[in-house]
Amino acid sequence: MLLTNFLMLSSILFCIGVYGVLARRNAVMVLMSIELILNAVNINLVAFGTIHGSISGHVFALFIIAVAAAEVGVGLAMVLLIYRNRSSIDLDDVDLLKG
């Protein structure tokens, strides 16, 4: 198996994730797209770690899984809060940052 196979798979998933972040209006779906991006990064780390015979790639993949879990937890709590305040999780409604 070629390394580039895994790298290309990772790139494709990453780009699909980016598209999802940009094209989705529903906050939960944006979070799902972010999960795709994080997974794409993971496969890259593990593939390179395997190539170089180093365990570091694997360890960092584990760290990313942990960080992703934290991110989803807090992210969904925020979505819930937004929903409670505005009865909507449409990200286009959340524009208080507007200058």
């Binding site: 972040v21 940009l22 286009d92 524009d95 507007k98 200058g99």
Partner: peptide
């Protein structure tokens, strides 16, 4: 650019 919508910022960033 100044509309406060997160996704626009995200598009610009990516």
């Amino acid at each position: 650019i100044q509309n406060g919508r997160i996704r626009q910022y995200a598009s610009l960033m990516f």
